[in-house]
Nucleic acid binder design. Sequence first.
DNA 1: GTGAAAGCGCTAACAT
DNA 2: ATGTTAGCGCTTTCAC
Lengths: 340, 340
Amino acid sequence: MSNRSRVTIREVAERVGVHPSTVSRVLNPVTRGRITPEVVDKVITVANELGYRPNQAARGLRTNRTSTIGVLIPDITNPLFPPIIRGIEDGLGANGYTAILGNTDNIVSREMDAVATMRARQVDGLILATARRDDPLIAEFLKDRLPVVLVNRTADADGVSSIVNDDVLGISLAVRHLKELGHRRIAHIAGPQTLSTGNARREGFLSVMGAKELLSEQKLVVETNAFSEDEGLRAAAQLISDGQEFTAIVAANDLLALGAYEAIADAGLSCPGDISVTGFNDMPFVDRLSPPLTTIRIPHYELGREAARRLIELIETPDSPARATTLRPELIVRGSTAEV
Amino acid sequence: MSNRSRVTIREVAERVGVHPSTVSRVLNPVTRGRITPEVVDKVITVANELGYRPNQAARGLRTNRTSTIGVLIPDITNPLFPPIIRGIEDGLGANGYTAILGNTDNIVSREMDAVATMRARQVDGLILATARRDDPLIAEFLKDRLPVVLVNRTADADGVSSIVNDDVLGISLAVRHLKELGHRRIAHIAGPQTLSTGNARREGFLSVMGAKELLSEQKLVVETNAFSEDEGLRAAAQLISDGQEFTAIVAANDLLALGAYEAIADAGLSCPGDISVTGFNDMPFVDRLSPPLTTIRIPHYELGREAARRLIELIETPDSPARATTLRPELIVRGSTAEV
DNA sequence: GTGAAAGCGCTAACAT
DNA sequence: ATGTTAGCGCTTTCAC
């Protein structure tokens, strides 16, 4: 037995000459008021002297609350997620909560494992950045009355709170920008339709392009099955080799746009000279590419922080209603878009 | 009281008709052998039926081990750290451990807070990616016999285990590459000397440049006080405006190199035409810059995974000796270096 | 091979 | 305003 965290509430009590529960009351801000100021002082002094540190595990066992929440993300090395996580941690930390993270790689079995671990650790709630539109986990959490907030991606199910970017607005910002530059035939590299982001951006694209153009544009929408550079390359290459006429590509995210850059170069064309390209996310360093990428900036940090706040609200006010919140994205014009 | 994790070992025991301790023994792989196979089967069946989930907090209270470890990093949004964290989590997860993260922003008070939180949560050990060379926390942990492993950065103190990149080798790889290209007057943008990475890379640079050249080169080493783009810009601008003759810059990391890119452009010079530049880290997307950055690749993921393994070893074999491990970096030649 | 009993450190009735 | 008591869910001696 090492001496880390050896000193308990009882030892403090003995040293001060009071009962352990008195010490407990002093240490809890809510109950501190009921104790004589001098006793409060003495307890605090002695606790500090002894290096007392409350044992969260013991407290959690008693109170049935751990102040720990679980966060499921696809992969922390995807540059999209660090700012979201940072936002979550800052939002939680300010309220005494701590996060445990699980990387799922979008693999269902890993997701199950991560959830099992988190529930064994008695998390008070969960934040999911991994939601698929038809995610089965969500129903399970709702049934068990385990507080959940979805972040970044939402799901089709209702009754669940979510904090996401306004994808439709974001796409319309990109399309309107291109239209102002004179573009008329605009292609879309759509993300996976199983994810709310991929789906909403595609729907947004179709809707903002307008009914008149819609029919003629349908060949100009290519779906991908992952938000990856490879898939962007494949989709853009297909668009080009199809012989479709278009002067711009709205990609459903930055990685897809990067793939489009490659396809354009491979075809001996230039961006933005021949084809303008827009991305989505404003990942780090896309301002340093050549050409610098015109894209839609999502307030990732704020997304995370809001998700944390919402979850805490849900935990501390169990019957607060589910709400779907969208945050406003912003158009960032750089060098990958030009006049026709 | 919600019904999450309501089912306890006692309920399982009652349903099966055995004593709770029997259920506990079945559920613990080590003691399972002492129980009759049929009883084992029945207990497992009923536990699954009831959706039993062991309560880690209760177990931890009893065993004085939480299988949780704390990870201190400067800032998760710095692209250096996600792969390290991912390596840590993968290394821990394979052994039933879970990480809690703390972002310190290199601010001492935040570091203290994070450590306090983690210790209150009874972490079994700590991984620090935040170590300064003279870090005072390390002595504290050693005194308390709390297992610690340093990752990425090490400290001057001994008696502490660390997993770091071989900085001296990395720098010598960069310098030798430049020498092979014919460069003789090579400048160094050094990182903060309070960090082992900044210090070791600077020492490595001076040593590999050789005694003969050393004297004449001293004006060619500029120190910075942060591994940031701004500091890189400032240092490179100073080098250029000083009127020093040099044909190449070895930057102590990629962000400093990015700053150097800017300074070179600001001065109306070109990279690699007038000045070759090397970085350190091989961050995501530095292959997409113009010019693509020649840099030293650090096996970040492996650093993290090794750190996790080492920590578990330390936790499970308390008297295992401290070891300092270095992993080999690799030169990645791209377009920012050219013949003189 | 299994049951009984105690206790990890804390909090929350309930008492005074 | 403070002490008493019990117990959160689990593991671990100690019996038998």
